Amino acid sequence: MEVRTIKVFTTVDNINLHTQVVDMSMTYGQQFGPTYLDGADVTKIKPHNSHEGKTFYVLPNDDTLRVEAFEYYHTTDPSFLGRYMSALNHTKKWKYPQVNGLTSIKWADNNCYLATALLTLQQIELKFNPPALQDAYYRARAGEAANFCALILAYCNKTVGELGDVRETMSYLFQHANLDSCKRVLNVVCKTCGQQQTTLKGVEAVMYMGTLSYEQFKKGVQIPCTCGKQATKYLVQQESPFVMMSAPPAQYELKHGTFTCASEYTGNYQCGHYKHITSKETLYCIDGALLTKSSEYKGPITDVFYKENSYTTTIK
């Protein structure tokens, strides 16, 4: 009895394709271990004539594949690729409408935090270190965002349907971005203890939790000093293409032309909904596939993004 075979390709990165001759009487799992086709788990399936010449994702289970996976995804987590594939199996079914010149995501599976993050990423200057993220990001900007969303979920250790947080998501993504040249110098002034300067680099240099107003941050924000008295913390120097200011959701007025974009969060910790506000020729609110415009805006804002380049204080 002759062994019926077909020729397929296996890959971990969709760049390096490895030619395989597979036995049609055995499952993919018996031949390769966990195997995925377009995100779908085909591990328990036997090869079919229609699979001839198709590319299958496999887990990096030998040295060659491990090197290829690390170079593309910059992670050695053995569960990463499987999590990416199972997320992709959902995100490829989502709709990605162009809204006001940006790629958004039609609401499904509690994905409003991903839509808000995706919209924000198209408006701030950011370059990702893992080629996987950078490639998928370019495709997302062009309207094909399924891979990018699935990668975000995998890097953030999230599953489809789980509630997510924009600030946490951005923080994970910033860790995989090139923020080497970003720098922030802060000064804390206390009447009792004097003053202390701190220099922050990388992710810490672009994120701040405690106030939404970048102007206020430049002037000074009140913080408790270690001595128990009130101290003032203010920005001395900022070198970065953008800054992200966050605070627990509270009524906040966004003035046209003073910011790049913002995240609105309605609801409580267990259950809520994100919308995205962007400042173009007027203010726009993007909620999944829905767009509304207004000249002014007041609502429960939790993150505001500002364009920056270089700032030095005039406070002496």
Rank of each mutant, 00 (worst) to 15 (best):
Lys7Asn: 10
Ala117Ser: 12
Phe242Leu: 03
Gly33Lys: 04
Gln270Met: 07
Thr226Gln: 13
Asn100Val: 06
Arg139Asp: 10
Leu59Gly: 08
Ile315Gly: 13
Tyr297Gln: 00
Val99Ala: 09
Cys285Pro: 01
Thr260Lys: 00
Gln134Thr: 12
Thr314Lys: 15
Cys149Asp: 03
Ala87His: 02
Ala87Val: 06
Arg83Gly: 06
Asn129Cys: 07
Lys54Met: 13
Val166Ser: 06
Tyr113Leu: 00
Cys285Trp: 00
Lys255Asn: 07
Val21Thr: 13
Tyr311Thr: 08
Phe259Gly: 01
Cys193Pro: 03
Glu204Gly: 09
Ala262Tyr: 00
Pro248Met: 15
Ser25Ala: 15
Tyr113Asn: 03
Glu144Thr: 07
Gly39Asn: 08
Lys293Met: 11
Thr258Pro: 00
Val221Gly: 03
Gln20Cys: 13
Ile301Asn: 00
Asp303Pro: 00
Met1Ile: 01
Tyr72Ala: 12
Arg184Cys: 05
His276Gly: 00
Pro47Glu: 04
Pro249Tyr: 00
Gln31Leu: 14
Lys255Ser: 10
Tyr306Cys: 00
Thr198Val: 13
Asn14Arg: 13
Thr302Val: 06
Pro78Val: 09
Thr232His: 09
Gln251Trp: 13
Thr55Val: 12
Met244Gln: 02
Asn111Glu: 04
Thr198Arg: 13
Val243Tyr: 01
His51Lys: 04
Leu126Gln: 01
Glu264His: 06
Ser171Leu: 09
Thr292His: 15
Gly194Tyr: 03
Ala154Met: 04
Gln122Asp: 03
Gly29Thr: 03
Thr91Met: 01
Asn157Ser: 08
Ala231Tyr: 01
Tyr311His: 15
Asn61Gly: 15
Val221Thr: 08
Ser181Met: 14
Thr27Pro: 10
Glu253Gly: 08
Gln230Lys: 13
Thr260Gly: 01
Thr5Ala: 14
Asn110Gln: 01
Thr55Asp: 03
Asp63Tyr: 09
Ala145Gly: 13
Gln216Asp: 12
Leu212Trp: 00
Leu212Asp: 00
Thr120Ala: 14
Thr19Gln: 10
Pro224Tyr: 12
Tyr138Phe: 13
Ser310Lys: 01
Lys183Gln: 15
Asp23Cys: 14
Gly33Arg: 04
Val221Ser: 05
Pro47Thr: 04
Leu102Pro: 01
Phe259Thr: 03
Thr64Leu: 11
Gln195Ala: 14
Ile301Arg: 01
Gln122Pro: 03
Gly272Ala: 01
His74Gly: 07
Val22Leu: 12
Glu296Lys: 10
Cys193Arg: 00
Gln123Met: 05
Ala87Gly: 06
Glu68Leu: 05
Leu235Thr: 03
Gln251Asp: 13
Pro130Val: 07
Thr198Met: 15
Tyr172Asn: 14
Val243Leu: 10
Met85Leu: 13
Tyr137Arg: 04
Thr282His: 12
Glu296Cys: 13
Ile105Ser: 01
Asn100Ile: 03
Ile301Phe: 02
Val21Phe: 15
Gly272Asn: 01
Gln122Val: 04
Tyr36Met: 04
Ser79Asn: 08
Glu2Pro: 14
Tyr306Met: 01
Ile45Ala: 13
Tyr28Val: 04
Leu283Phe: 14
Lys44Ser: 13
Val304Cys: 02
Arg83Asn: 10
Cys285Gly: 05
Ser294Thr: 14
Lys191Arg: 10
Asn16Met: 08
Glu52Gly: 14
Ala142Pro: 03
Lys233Thr: 11
Phe70Ala: 14
Glu168Tyr: 07
Asp135Val: 08
Leu126Val: 13
Thr211Cys: 11
Glu253Thr: 10
Lys229Ser: 15
Asp180Glu: 12
Pro248Ile: 07
Ala262Cys: 02
Ala145Pro: 10
Phe70Thr: 09
Cys112Ala: 02
Tyr274Thr: 00
Met209Ser: 09
Ala146Met: 06
Phe9Arg: 10
Phe259Asp: 02
Thr91Ile: 05
Leu17Thr: 09
Pro300Asp: 09
Thr278Phe: 13
Pro224Asp: 11
Thr199Lys: 08
His276Leu: 08
Cys190Pro: 01
Asp303Gln: 00
Ile315Val: 13
Ile45His: 11
Thr278Ser: 12
Gln134Glu: 11
Gln216Pro: 00
Lys229Cys: 13
Lys54Glu: 15
Phe217Glu: 02
Lys280Leu: 14
Tyr73Glu: 04
Tyr172Ile: 15
Gly33Thr: 03
Ile124Ser: 02
Val8Cys: 13
His276Pro: 01
Glu239Asn: 10
Cys156Ile: 10
Ile15Val: 12
Ala231Trp: 00
Leu59Asn: 14
Gly267Val: 08
Arg4Lys: 14
Glu144Tyr: 12
Ala289Met: 12
Glu253Phe: 10
Val189Pro: 03
Pro34Ser: 13
Cys227Glu: 03
Tyr73Met: 04
Gln175Val: 06
Thr312Trp: 08
Asn89Gly: 13
Gly257Asn: 09
Gln98Arg: 10
Thr302Ser: 07
His276Ala: 01
Val21Asn: 10
